[in-house]
């Protein structure tokens, strides 16, 4: 039986990832580019569109974060209006990353926006939990971290969003899965490095290992939307992809080109994968014991599953 929050969701959902290649800081121009992508989608409109982290501004902004950050409502409104112009009142769920200005506190965020004939509404907002601040990264200098990981009832059923480094901490997808998520959306901006491997950047190989491991362990879809394009010599690795609940790649975009990735998310695949490898059930059973270990700092529990 589907969980209550999933009963109204379709069993198959048409997905499009728009792998953007933004010009640094030029939000209006990048939104116009997105409109072109949506026009391309109009011939076969998806139910769900996913964009990368910092999808319409570029990632490495330093102090310019404060120039380009938007309220969640403004970003959601812009996404919905762009969709409506291209695809009319066709219902869609739009997920994308942006720098958020919340009354002068700044976050690296992503929203899920539901747009239809009745207008638009924000279904969910995730603020990046883990801000990379080492080596080439300097996020914590410019933005604040999020404090909660929530699931939400997406068009494809119970889902969660985790941004980039969030998923390198296995506790994040673990909590999302235990809270009921069948799909994990990962907007990302990953600068490539490592050219001593064979045919693939080392950093991309590591990403693939992480994404496949998440999907396999929890029997969930992982939808990765990667930013692409060079930013001051640092090349974002694109490679947007869909990993199925058995940990296999369904489709993958190229490294360095603006691209659209199409796939279908099918609940039945989640159910079959979890039936064949019931690790998530085992985890849900054992995790409370592990988290209630009094040697752990401040266990908070893992309650609060999806609400319809």
């Amino acid at each position: 039986m589907p969980s209550p929050e999933d009963r109204n969701a379709a069993s198959q959902v048409a997905l499009a990832i728009v792998q953007t290649k933004p010009r640094k800081g030029r939000y209006a121009e990048n939104l116009a580019d997105l409109a072109q992508a949506f026009e391309q989608l109009a011939a076969e409109p998806p139910d769900l569109v996913v964009l990368p982290e910092a999808a319409l501004t570029g990632y490495f902004l330093e102090g310019a974060v404060y120039d380009v950050a938007l309220t969640a409502e403004r970003f959601a409104s812009d996404l919905a209006a762009t969709w409506r112009t291209a695809c009319g009142e066709r219902p869609v769920e739009l997920i994308g990353g942006f720098y958020e200005n919340d009354d002068g506190t700044y976050y690296n965020s992503a929203v899920a926006v539901r747009a239809d004939a009745g207008g638009w509404r924000i279904e969910h907002r995730h603020r990046k939990l883990f801000l990379p601040t080492y080596g080439v990264f300097d996020e914590a200098r410019f933005v604040s971290r999020g404090r909660r990981l929530e699931t939400f009832a997406a068009v494809c059923g119970c889902s969660a969003i985790a941004i980039c480094e969030d998923v390198w901490h296995s506790i994040v997808p673990t909590i999302a899965a235990v809270k009921g998520a069948r799909v994990l959306f990962v907007p990302s901006a990953a600068p490539g490095r490592g050219i001593d491997g064979a045919g693939e950047l080392t950093s991309v190989v590591r990403w693939h290992e992480v994404l496949r491991s998440i999907a396999l362990e929890h029997g969930m879809y992982v939808v990765y939307a990667g930013l692409t394009g060079f930013e001051g010599g640092k090349g974002m690795t694109g490679s947007s992809c869909v990993v199925d609940p058995r940990g296999e790649f369904r489709v993958r975009a190229p490294l360095t080109e603006a691209s659209i990735v199409r796939a279908v998310l099918d609940w039945r695949e989640v159910e079959l994968a979890r039936a064949g490898l019931p690790l998530l059930g085992d985890l849900a059973d054992v995790l409370p014991d592990l988290l209630l270990d009094d040697q752990l700092p401040l266990p908070r529990g893992i309650g609060g599953a999806c609400t319809p």
Partner: peptide, 11 residues
Amino acid sequence: PGIDPELAERW
């Protein structure tokens, strides 16, 4: 250190 020259060229 090594290098995958074909990959480096593309990049």
